[in-house]
Design a protein around this nucleic acid. Structure first.
Lengths: 121, 121
DNA sequence: GTTCAAATTTGACATATATCGATTCCCGGG
DNA sequence: CCCGGGAATCGATATATGTCAAATTTGAAC
């Protein structure tokens, strides 16, 4: 209510889970994204993609990092993509994936009162 | 009851997923937590608990918010607890649950360069 | 056009998960 | 001590999920 999620395609910017109860709709949308992250392989895939040079990675760069078949990797990438966490594009023979930072940021902001910067190191 | 399934111990405070690839161990730990959040009921439960007066809620405050049986709510609370996201304590007849903010903060920090609200500039 | 390599889709299967009713556990009150 | 109510556990079941092999798609090179 206090947030006009209208057509912003999902970005309730100021309602962390600790603030006020989530609506059923919000919970459903967010749960899809969290569920996509709820698998070690997918978490590592996301991490590998994000950390790869240029911010994107070819599928051929990813499969080698797991003891899993190609189809399985493809399946996990599809889950991540359909959750709105990554996007992909085909270039010639190869398909490249990259992370959608807004999605991660949305989840991060929901999880808490913004940890006030990492100040890493 | 206020136990925790022996996780914790690890808190890689400054390695967001966008920075460097996650190790298999990290991914497994984090995936357990994200998976716990990957269900609309559990997300709403967490939210209801966090937003409840005093920062804690009795189970009797929670069951009414869902069209689900008591055992089912109990099951979801157990999943959240075993993931290290919430803790519980029995007081007389009732059992109270509260959120463990460090856990949420850990997930939040992993998800990105810490939104840091407005401080980022 | 044919062939080859990269990636996805399909079909199948074993396991995991969400849910419920019935039962059990825990505690306060008579 | 027994009863009643809140909550967790148990046992069962339907659905979802992770995984692979086989088949299909896509585009490049010959």
């Amino acid at each position: 209510m206090s947030n006009q999620t209208g057509q912003d395609s999902g970005r309730w910017c100021c309602s962390p889970v600790t603030g006020e109860p989530l609506s059923g709709e919000q919970a459903g949308q967010l749960a899809t994204m969290f569920k996509a992250l709820g698998d070690p392989v997918r978490l590592r895939l996301l991490s590998l993609i994000a950390a790869h040079a240029g911010g994107e990675a070819c599928v051929c760069d990813l499969t080698g990092a797991f003891d899993l078949s190609g189809p399985t990797i493809s399946h996990h990438l599809k889950v991540l993509r359909e959750a709105g966490l990554i996007a992909s594009e085909r270039r010639a023979t190869w398909v490249y994936y990259w992370v959608l930072p807004e999605a991660l940021q949305q989840l991060s902001s929901v999880l808490g009162p913004a940890p006030a910067a990492a100040t890493r190191g």
